[in-house]
Amino acid sequence: MKDSTIISNKKSLNKFVIILFWVAVWQILHLFIGRDIYVPSPFSVVMRLKELIFLKVFWTSIAFSIYRVIIGLFLSITLGIIVGVISSMNRYVYDLIHPLMTAIKATPVLSFIILALIWLSSSNVPIFICFLMCFPIIWTNVVTGISNVDKKLLEMAKVYGVKRLTVIKKIYLPSIIPYLSAACITSLGLGWKVSVAAEVLSHPRNAIGSHLYSAKVYLDSSELFAWTLVVILLSLLFERILAGFIGKLTYRKTTKGSAVLDKGCVKIEATD
């Protein structure tokens, strides 16, 4: 948001030019360092990617990694909302849950991954880690969203005898959605990263992380870069899809025709 206001008066660079610039930087870096094992050339990475996409295991790995992220996110979003709502309704529950969330946020992901490796089967570790990292974000934003509901609107509804269910639907929900959607977008990005990290250590059979691990074992930098590229692209793709979906929920048209985003561009800190 801020960036766009700073540069909005200038013509923005063509996306293609931006990509070209950074690929050139990469290529120069590659030439400068001169060893494929440290920085492979963009060309060799693309070639490796081209080889990969014809392999069945490439697609099954992607499919299973996506599946794990989705399950992890689904769990964290549903439970985050449920526990968030309960914590907002009951002060004691909030007091009990709050320190737990703070602790989870402050704990290094690796500690959890190692612990999960002991507890769970390799395929479930990434799901659990994704859930564990995203749950506090969802919870925090749900609680903040609920506590930021405009009291004056609630009073208005009370005077006019509006029923509880209507108040929830028409006042609470619209106030919370901006917070929840911000939390979902952050969780999506974070979920991908931690879930792949967990896969690297737990190496389940079909997983992007397992390929990253074998790239490390064989010191195959092109493969490492190729798979990393896949993760980045998938993450961007999903963010687009989610943003589009959320946009449908919160964008609205005024009769004057301008699209307005509901206020509440909520910033949340991500724990890496």
């Binding site: 004056k152 009073e155 208005m156 509804a157 509006v162 209507t166 509901d262 206020k263």
Partner: peptide, 27 residues
């Protein structure tokens, strides 16, 4: 009570019609 508040207290995410409908719908 019908109460005209000192501030307008309208739901920003609802149209004029929806704002009025909100308080009539349950009564």
């Amino acid at each position: 009570f019908s109460y005209i508040f000192q501030e307008d207290r309208l739901l920003p995410w609802a149209t004029v019609e929806e704002n009025i409908f909100l308080i009539l719908t349950d009564s």
